[in-house]
Design a protein around this nucleic acid. Structure first.
Lengths: 342, 342
DNA sequence: CTGTTAGCGCTTTCAC
DNA sequence: GTGAAAGCGCTAACAG
């Protein structure tokens, strides 16, 4: 298939030194003499040598590769994070392997296998729904496992893993406060996927802020969704059926808000005239739909790069202090769907 | 860091056979006796063994890993393809490594290095702007290099690489024909990035279809863009400045169409009342904006999986007929921006 | 059908 | 500062 690729032997021969010296010249130039270094450099150029990663990995017992586990690469919410991760990893000399969870039935096992088979040195988990038990079982309880969570913390054992994410409770409170400040007194909430911790956090924020303003929390105004566009549309139907409709809705994410708005509109209501809508995430369509969707902007690129940095830190310097969790602020972005109430 | 991981030796000891037998039992179960196979299987389970990929790669001179080179993972246009590629690869037992081009200055060299360093067996190129000379130099001219292009064919040497893509000329003709059938006689075109072959193909389709209908091609109606949202908005300004404005516009991609529409609207024109707009790609926002954008739907997932299949074919069966290029049909999706002309 | 053996290309002691 | 030699874990001859 290929031309036979040059090995370190070829370089050694060409430079008239031993393979050990070539290796040293390449990994830590200060450990060889100037003259040797130059001859090696020249020989490398002449032969077109590149280190064989497989051999290096086998010898060094690491792969300089990160694994990113995510539910759906096609979902921009995740792919933006992935992009930032890849960039961070690449700058640190790490390659990035991806595992999309949609694929195989057994999710966690695939990851464990990758880790165990020395294909990757560490894992970034962007997905709230991956089973991590298999992964965790590989490690001594008192060691720091090379796993970082992004976006979602986890229950059980995994709750001790470091997580980089937005402060969902605080951000939700900001959104609800915004609606209240616009004069809304009755605000509905469309929740996320019941299995997700994010759902709980945003619901909590919604409740807390209402209570802080002395507004009663009405169960009737909490409509179940699952983060999908369709569930937002379905929630709109429930919303329309309410005898006494609230003047505002806080949707647990943007996708549902888009579905909600589109359905509401079909029914002849106008946004924000008849109902103000707030979302969460600031995905691209939030900006492009008309009117623009007011939402909480999550800095997904930042989350991604912080997570990658934390993981690389663990991998390159195991004696450093173990990575800490980060909770980032999300920023309120006001657009057309919450125009001033007149 | 880890507990010491079990090796094939541990399995062999536990099963009371040689390592070679374990290896055989694992890679081709038919080559060992039933009894042996069972004992090995059991031993594998007991020890929790997983093959060390680094060792296997070193020995077999392959990595069972694909590299996907793309300009921007965060761009949904590419990430949907990436998703399909990853799924296809995973099903065939290949891992997927990503290289986002935004990162490093030297683009092509990074890829060549990955290939040469045995980190990956083949490359899928989703990006029209990556320099491939370095990659191609690695291969004998008469060998099939393990590189497949998706979306964009290339000039020069690389033009001989197989490419999987939409039939841009034909699809553009379809769109223009649609506009003509709606009664439009003067149709503007906003072009893509001058460096891109896609730009040329879509422009060609635009021209051909006009001519086929006996409509003169007016240079004045061909406005330069670069595929970005902003360039669509800028093109709208030029469009507005035309003394005799056409009644329809065919934008070379959806992003520009979105920018165009938003700018046109700011100027007080209505879509499609004052101008009909057609795009290309069918990205998600095309469906979500109001009115919905009429566009050519590219089956990006299909392109991705076909490309991955072709590459895996080359890698697993080098004696098979070399992969051929595919040109897929794109489908016209009619939405609000080209409502019937009355 | 199974065991023995060599060696993939690299890094790392251990000498000098 | 450099070389010799061992060995990471696996698979592919080659025998038997």
């Amino acid at each position: 298939m290929h031309k036979r690729l040059p090995t370190i032997q070829d370089v050694a021969r060409s430079a008239g030194v031993s393979t050990a010296t070539v290796s040293r010249a390449l990994t830590d130039p200060t450990r060889v003499s100037d003259a040797t270094r130059q001859r090696v450099t020249l020989a490398v150029r002449e032969t077109g040598y590149t280190v064989n990663q497989a051999a290096r990995s086998l010898r060094k017992q690491n792969s300089n590769t990160l694994l990113v586990a995510l539910p759906d690469i096609g979902n921009p919410f995740f792919s933006v994070m992935l992009d930032a991760i890849e960039r961070t990893a690449s700058e640190a000399g790490f390659a990035t392997l991806i595992a999309s969870r949609k694929q195989a039935g057994e999710a966690g096992s695939k990851l464990a296998e990758h880790l165990q088979s020395h294909r990757v040195d560490g894992v970034l988990v962007l997905d709230g729904s991956i089973a991590l038990d298999g992964l965790l079982a590989l490690h001594d309880p008192d060691e720091v496992p090379p796993i970082i969570l992004a976006c979602e913390e986890r229950p059980g054992l995994a709750s001790q893993l470091p997580v980089i994410k937005s402060d969902n409770v605080g951000a939700s409170r900001k959104m609800v406060r915004h609606l209240i400040e616009l004069g809304h007194q009755r605000i509905a909430h469309i929740t996320g996927d019941p299995d997700s911790i994010v759902r709980a956090a945003r619901l909590k924020g919604y409740r807390e802020e209402l209570i802080a303003h002395g507004i009663p929390v009405e169960d009737e105004l909490i409509i179940e969704g699952d983060f999908s566009l369709e569930s937002g549309a379905a929630a709109a139907q429930q919303f329309l059926a309410l005898s006494d409709r609230p003047s505002a809705v806080f949707c647990s994410n943007d996708m549902m808000a888009v579905g909600f708005i589109s359905e509401i509109r079909t029914a002849g209501l106008k946004v924000p005239r008849d109902v103000s809508v707030g979302g969460f995430d600031d995905i691209m369509v939030a900006e492009k739909i008309w009117p623009g969707l007011t939402t909480m902007h999550q800095d997904r690129a930042r989350i991604g790069s912080l997570a990658a940095e934390a993981l690389i830190q663990v991998l390159t310097d195991p004696d450093a202090t173990p990575p800490r969790s980060h909770f980032l602020d999300a920023e309120l972005v006001v657009r057309g769907t919450t125009a001033l109430k007149t």
